[in-house]
Amino acid sequence: MSKDTPDPRRRRLSVLASAPAHRLQALWAELGAAPDYTLIRAPEIGAAMVRGRAGVTGAAFNLGEITVTRCSVELSDGAVGHGYVQGRDKNAALIAALADALAESGEAARVEAGLIAPLVAEAEAHTRDRAAKTAATKVEFFTVAREAGG
């Protein structure tokens, strides 16, 4: 996530996009929100082309695609939510859209506390765990000094 755009909606949608589907479903169920909604765009599985740059900094090129599922909903109060999740889980895309809509309809704090913060904490714990194991494979060079006259 770019540090220069702390926009809460951007952060929220990004967290929802990468969340493991089973965690998203469990946390959403715990949140107990069941807003009335209409589907603006029914959950739809598609792909996005991922681009890279030649030599890290050069011209862009098409690397390959990822699967993405998206969904848009409108709550009875008119709040619109969009969900984009990695993979092919339509229910996860619907939950992401509902959570976004709920936050847009004035319940941002509830969504943050019940959904976003726990997902961020879990992702960070996973990253820390992996980083610690990776760090243990860092090479600590030492130089064998040649004995004088050797």
């Binding site: 598609g46 792909a47 991922v50 699967t67």
Partner: peptide, 9 residues
């Protein structure tokens, strides 16, 4: 699959 778009590099 329909293509939704392309990522930033």
């Amino acid at each position: 699959l329909p293509r939704f778009g392309a990522s930033r590099p």
